Amino acid sequence: MPKPTQPPSVTDNVPLADAPEARPDPLFNLSLAKGLAVLRSFDAGHRAMTLSEVAARSDMTKASAQRTVHTLEVLGYLGRQPRTGRFCLQPKALEIGYGYVASHPLALAATPYLAQLSNESGETASLTEPVELDMVYIAQRMTTQFIPVLTPVGMRIPMYCTSSGRAWLAGQSDAQVAAVLAASAREPRTPHTLTDVAAITERIDECRRVGYAWNAEELFLGDMGIAAPIVDRRGVTHGAVHVSPPTCRWTPDDARQRLAPLVIECARAIASALPG
């Protein structure tokens, strides 16, 4: 179950890296925290940055950021663009996340079933699991057809407005659902985004009744989602599997009618393949 509130991150404007008093734990390694903060500061909107930009995104002083960036550059996790001299991630940074995905029981169990779901639906099939107030992609089988939005492995999406997030929340208690929604920003990502707690809760309750959750252009325009929770034999919800039918090929009603049974079947197959 995700925590009701998110811990400080590199985008929270919390002086995590330069405020030891904020972390009284004697075992807490501040240098390591700084390094991770710098790596996390790079994303799709910040692919290459100056040292000052890295410092601002990581909530560090420029001097502290310089030492951390230099260390990561020497180790091969950061490099510089030849023309601009801006810092950017290097392929070695993939090793950190790859070890997690490559050894993840849920991702390993889901691989053949995601392929089958993608083939049968003709759409991209994805596996996500909860991280704080978000769902993170841990496996995916891409369609060969046009897709309006790229959602690669490692990307995080908010629970409140996504089919996979609502599917996972459907397996939690009412109190846990309320805590997550209360802590979520619930911003209108598109004109179609549900932000009202009662309306979102109604969708989650619907998932509990019918076995799948859905959204229509609530996170990205032109993109929909049909998701089912992955629930093991003990009743524990591990994550969700979903397909992403675009509005250029599907109507919401057609997607729900034709794709939901495939997604539910896939989720059950993955759950049955989990170890233990």
Rank of each mutant, 00 (worst) to 15 (best):
residue 17 A to Q: 08
residue 17 A to I: 05
residue 18 D to Y: 01
residue 18 D to T: 11
residue 18 D to H: 02
residue 18 D to W: 00
residue 19 A to L: 08
residue 20 P to D: 09
residue 20 P to Q: 06
residue 20 P to M: 07
residue 20 P to A: 09
residue 20 P to W: 06
residue 21 E to D: 13
residue 21 E to V: 10
residue 21 E to S: 13
residue 21 E to C: 03
residue 22 A to P: 00
residue 22 A to G: 08
residue 22 A to W: 05
residue 22 A to E: 03
residue 23 R to P: 00
residue 23 R to W: 12
residue 23 R to S: 07
residue 24 P to N: 02
residue 24 P to I: 00
residue 25 D to H: 09
residue 25 D to E: 10
residue 25 D to R: 12
residue 26 P to V: 05
residue 26 P to Y: 07
residue 26 P to R: 10
residue 27 L to R: 12
residue 27 L to E: 10
residue 27 L to V: 08
residue 28 F to M: 05
residue 28 F to S: 02
residue 28 F to Y: 15
residue 29 N to M: 10
residue 29 N to D: 15
residue 29 N to T: 01
residue 29 N to V: 12
residue 29 N to A: 13
residue 30 L to E: 11
residue 30 L to Q: 14
residue 30 L to P: 03
residue 30 L to T: 09
residue 31 S to M: 08
residue 31 S to R: 14
residue 32 L to Q: 13
residue 32 L to T: 14
residue 32 L to F: 11
residue 33 A to S: 14
residue 34 K to P: 09
residue 34 K to Q: 15
residue 34 K to C: 15
residue 35 G to D: 10
residue 35 G to Q: 15
residue 35 G to L: 14
residue 35 G to T: 08
residue 36 L to A: 13
residue 36 L to H: 02
residue 36 L to G: 00
residue 36 L to E: 09
residue 37 A to K: 01
residue 37 A to D: 08
residue 37 A to F: 13
residue 38 V to P: 01
residue 38 V to N: 01
residue 39 L to W: 04
residue 39 L to R: 08
residue 39 L to M: 15
residue 39 L to V: 06
residue 40 R to M: 09
residue 40 R to D: 13
residue 40 R to P: 00
residue 41 S to Q: 03
residue 41 S to F: 02
residue 41 S to M: 04
residue 42 F to M: 07
residue 42 F to K: 00
residue 42 F to D: 00
residue 42 F to I: 05
residue 43 D to K: 02
residue 43 D to F: 05
residue 43 D to V: 02
residue 44 A to H: 07
residue 44 A to E: 11
residue 44 A to G: 09
residue 45 G to C: 04
residue 45 G to M: 02
residue 45 G to F: 04
residue 46 H to P: 03
residue 46 H to K: 10
residue 47 R to K: 14
residue 47 R to Y: 01
residue 47 R to P: 05
residue 48 A to Y: 03
residue 50 T to E: 10
residue 50 T to C: 03
residue 50 T to M: 09
residue 50 T to V: 05
residue 51 L to T: 04
residue 51 L to Y: 00
residue 51 L to K: 00
residue 52 S to R: 09
residue 52 S to W: 03
residue 52 S to M: 04
residue 53 E to W: 06
residue 53 E to N: 04
residue 53 E to S: 05
residue 54 V to W: 00
residue 54 V to S: 01
residue 54 V to T: 05
residue 54 V to N: 01
residue 55 A to G: 08
residue 55 A to D: 10
residue 56 A to S: 11
residue 56 A to N: 06
residue 56 A to L: 08
residue 57 R to Q: 11
residue 57 R to K: 09
residue 57 R to I: 01
residue 57 R to L: 06
residue 58 S to T: 06
residue 59 D to E: 13
residue 59 D to A: 11
residue 59 D to T: 04
residue 59 D to R: 10
residue 59 D to V: 03
residue 60 M to L: 15
residue 60 M to D: 01
residue 60 M to C: 08
residue 61 T to K: 07
residue 62 K to P: 00
residue 62 K to V: 13
residue 62 K to D: 07
residue 62 K to W: 03
residue 62 K to E: 14
residue 62 K to R: 15
residue 63 A to M: 13
residue 63 A to I: 13
residue 63 A to W: 01
residue 63 A to P: 04
residue 63 A to E: 12
residue 64 S to H: 07
residue 65 A to N: 10
residue 65 A to Y: 02
residue 65 A to V: 07
residue 65 A to P: 11
residue 65 A to Q: 06
residue 66 Q to L: 12
residue 67 R to L: 13
residue 67 R to V: 12
residue 67 R to D: 10
residue 67 R to K: 12
residue 67 R to S: 14
residue 68 T to I: 14
residue 68 T to G: 12
residue 68 T to E: 14
residue 69 V to C: 11
